[in-house]
Design a protein around this nucleic acid. Structure first.
Lengths: 205, 205
DNA sequence: AAAATAAAAACGAACGTTCGTTCATTTTTG
DNA sequence: CAAAAATGAACGAACGTTCGTTTTTATTTT
């Protein structure tokens, strides 16, 4: 009884999620400011005024979405649990697992850019400062005593890691439908990982 | 007389540029949809209705800006003229020159993301397909007969090149003010270039 | 199990504001 | 002196939010 009652979501919770789902779709399609509360209400299947029983404002919907559906939320635990015999295997796994998760819903990456463009990183800074202290130690631990790493600055290693992933998705979303897409290797993610690990040049300095 | 008259900009041209300058500032600060025609008029120093003597609509202002001030416009000729004894020197120069130019006005990179977020890449696709055919041959020429390159796919080489630059600016704009910024090496651009050229691992496969 | 009841949720009209654009008019320019 | 540019009031439409009301839900009392 206790278990069952606890798992049954209340009507309000269901509606709240419906609003979030409708809003995130519209935000990704059109951006934040171009999306109206009426559009959100329509797609969520309720009246305009009903939204305000669950969210105090439009911006509060966006904040809830950013917190709930931010890609880092999903990726972080995966990276933390990534394993491998050596550094190379570890990083390859980390990339694989990260791109795999993000790749299943690549458009959620767009939330980051909406935040960047339309809010000037207003919420992003706080999110970043929440995430960074958790991830940085992982890279610090990773580096310790590993002779096979050329890059030994943990902050640089972390940033370049996520930088590669971000640039992968941007170019994927922008380029995939263009001429260049047809000339790219089939497994672009693997190619990107390879460049990240070994660079584009044959000979190391 | 002929020379002087040709170089003196007409009043209309001056105003048109003032509108573009005001608009690009506001778009970068707030995004496209959050910026109003009244704000643009105020900052450009003319009345609301006056804008429509120079632009037919708000979107036309944005289109003009994207075409005139797109970072690729400035970067392209620089990359095309980049030189170097070997592949490494060439790429280092190309990166240096690219980041140097973009770095002087890094916020113009944001126009790309505004276009991506608020127009869903509406103009971006056409711009990309205009630029790509010009840049791709450069990378193809670059690759021919160069044994020191691990990556021999020109499309991949090009994409990873610009991907690195894009990711550099995103993380620079997002991270620079956070905790991580203080832990980063001073010359992040050089560190990024180094990773692009040689990877993060010491030993090549 | 049924009835009662207070809280939560849904409704849709209405509010005041702001939006992009138009227009008739005046001023400035070449 | 004709064309170009600037003006600011005005337009209808759309915006986020509020409000009084009705309906539905979840819980308590019979």
């Amino acid at each position: 009884m206790a278990t069952k009652a606890k798992e049954t979501p209340t009507k309000g919770e269901v509606t709240r999620l419906a609003i979030e789902d409708a809003a995130v779709e519209l935000f990704i399609e059109q951006g934040y400011h171009a999306t109206s509360m009426r559009q959100i209400a329509d797609r969520a299947g309720l009246a305009l005024g009903g939204i305000y029983n669950h969210f105090a404002s439009k911006e509060e919907i966006f904040e809830a979405i950013v917190l709930d559906k931010h890609p880092y939320k999903k990726v972080l635990p995966l990276v933390l649990e990534a394993q491998g015999e050596d550094m190379k295997a570890f990083l390859q796994n980390a990339v694989k697992v990260t791109l795999g998760e993000l790749g299943s819903e690549p458009m959620y990456m767009k939330l980051m850019f909406i935040e960047f463009v339309e809010f000037n990183g207003k919420h992003g800074a706080s999110i970043l400062s929440e995430i960074a202290p958790k991830v940085l130690p992982v890279f610090e631990r990773m580096i310790k005593g590993r002779k096979e790493l050329r890059v030994t600055n943990p902050a640089l290693l972390m940033r370049s890691f996520f930088g590669m992933i971000i640039s992968y998705f941007i170019t994927e979303m922008l380029i995939s439908k263009s001429v260049i897409g047809k000339l790219m290797p089939k497994d672009t993610a693997a190619a990107y990982t390879d460049i990240y690990l070994h660079g584009i040049l044959r000979e190391p300095v």
